[in-house]
Design a protein around this nucleic acid. Structure first.
Lengths: 341, 341
DNA sequence: CTGAAAGCGCTTACAG
DNA sequence: CTGAAAGCGCTTACAG
């Protein structure tokens, strides 16, 4: 049966509850906010009226009078790619547990007009705080352009020494370094890198890779620049030198693209070439051969980021940065190189 | 250099603009809303003041006086799984283009208290409309419990004849049917099914699979019930009868889990067993062998859903349902079965 | 074309 | 413990 919208189902407001309970507006408000003493009898009467009418406080009115709201904004270049979606998921879960609503604002490019439009859209809302997912160049530009009248925390991959906002990090510099060291320890002469797009000139992953090669005194091959998607890895594999025996990829999707292209050419993984991904997406363990990768806890990053923002909003004290080091997840796609004939 | 939050950077309000431009509040409001004639000279003066002060309208105040806002809520059981995240992405993109903000509300279970909490959280906000991602049991329960005072459109996988709200469908019944017919046409005796969790007792995918088998007069094997993740497909493969030569999986992640387990046992894909996925996730084309699957345009579904909601909000006329039929994406994981010795 | 005033639904001093 | 009143930042009739 269709039930149409009906203007007569007027949404009840505070005055309706007050009338139904036979008390003043102030009293109803006190019962609902719980911020002032009310007699038990009155409280009960009001609560009954609230339940009977199905009253819900109007968040817009509350935001207007309080000057804040229980909403946080998440600003990101994207919500679909794995790391972004998983971080958003962690933020949402933690925010919900704390009683906050989450608004998402996607900023698609670092074009100044686009950035300004995104910020204006968010900053006209009554937000209590904001989180920027700072995994790429757009995040960095947006972060720099944000007003300072509300707490803002960034969720970021790489450590940024010059950051002027609190950051929660996933230390992918360290991840890149450890992955590279591990591959060298297997006996590879050097490690090649197929890179994702990055915040600045280079991603933390790439810096870590360079550092490990430099520390070991190994040759640093030219970086192969790619996108985020498997097809991009597939194409990037064409640029790989034939001598390559180990490839660190900027994410798992690039890794499977590279792996597929090599396998099509008859290259055996890991016997001929070791492949290491980054992120540990759900499919990585099921790949054939299963993918060694750098495990990144994006959901945990999202939770930590919200927790930092929350403490800031409650205490009015700017939180310190927070870092977590990724963990290598070793599976079948990496091994000691087979001697070449 | 650190710049701390500073109460003296007071956010400018309409009155500040009015004072700066030497006009009344009403005039500034008219310039900004554009809903009434204003002289060119005055308009220019006001716009200059707006730009100089960096004025942004306060959305809470607007929502309060207008009784609505340019915000839509997306209610979903999850924002991380592929179909959900891609649908959300489509909604967000279309909403942004139309000048709307997007709020997300995750309802984790169909427990009545949890559902009510989710709805109260959303319905206390000044939303102009809402979209429910109705891919699972939680979506269905939430949809049924939603108030009728605001337009609500659902994004759904399977056709639901009894739906009392406008739905945008991805006709996965048809997808399941076509996939099964295709596998039969290759010469398989029957097709097995590894199922994802579903809205009701059975998903549209499963109904389509049954229909195709029934229409062809083939045996209907017991369904193997699984979750959403690759590991769950891996485990489900244990329950597959040894005679199975073709398996339709409820999503691509299950498919790669099933495929991996079979490959570990020395089963060749597709020579011994054909595997077909569902969704066409980005990794499907890169799998070895690349995965045949049912292509589902979740991003398009999200866009269509928002477009329906938008037209409803603008015209006040309830939109009709909308359906798109998925397309088979044929790759290497399906083939004519090799005769068994 | 422009301004003064009322009102959207709340919260919170201010009195009692 | 309770109520009347002011005010949050806007929009929009109502007058001019």
């Amino acid at each position: 049966m269709l039930r149409m919208m009906d203007a007569r189902d007027r949404v009840p407001v505070l005055a309706d509850v007050a009338a139904a309970a036979g008390v003043s507006l102030s009293t109803v408000s006190r019962v609902i906010t719980g911020r002032a003493p009310v007699s038990e009898k009155t409280r009960t009467r009001v609560m009954e009226a609230v339940a009977r009418l199905g009253y819900r406080p109007n968040a817009a009115a509350q935001a207007l009078v309080l000057g804040r709201s229980a909403t946080v904004a998440v600003i990101a270049n994207n919500t679909l790619r794995w790391g972004y979606a998983a971080t958003l998921h962690g933020i949402e879960e933690e925010a919900r547990a704390a009683g906050f609503s989450v608004m998402i604002a996607v900023v698609e490019s670092d074009d100044p007009d686009e950035v300004r439009r995104g910020i204006d859209g968010v900053w006209s809302q009554p937000i209590a705080g904001a989180i920027v997912i700072d995994f790429d160049a757009v995040g960095a530009v947006t972060l720099a352009a944000l007003p300072h009248n509300v707490p803002v925390v960034a969720a970021s991959g790489a450590w940024q020494p010059e950051a002027d906002r609190p950051h929660a990090y996933l230390d992918d510099f360290e991840g890149g370094r450890q992955a590279t060291e591990y591959l060298l320890s297997l006996g590879h002469e050097t490690v090649h890198h197929v890179a994702i797009p990055s915040t600045g000139e280079r991603s933390g992953r790439e810096w870590g890779w360079r550092r490990a090669l430099a520390d070991a005194g190994r040759a640093v091959p030219d970086v192969i620049r790619a996108g985020y998607h498997p097809e991009s890895g597939y194409a990037a594999a064409e640029q790989l030198e034939p001598e390559a025996t180990a490839v660190l990829c900027g994410n798992d999707e690039l890794a499977i693209g590279v792996a597929r292209r090599l396998q099509e050419r008859g290259v055996s993984i890991p016997d001929d070439v070791s492949i290491m991904g980054f992120d540990d997406q759900p499919f990585a363990a099921m790949w054939v051969p299963s993918l060694s990768t750098v495990g990144q806890d994006f959901v945990g990053l999202g939770k930590r980021t919200f927790a930092m923002l929350h403490s800031w909003m409650l205490s009015n004290e700017r939180p310190a940065h927070s870092t977590v080091v990724p963990e290598l997840v070793l599976r079948q796609s990496t091994a000691t190189p087979r001697p070449r004939g």
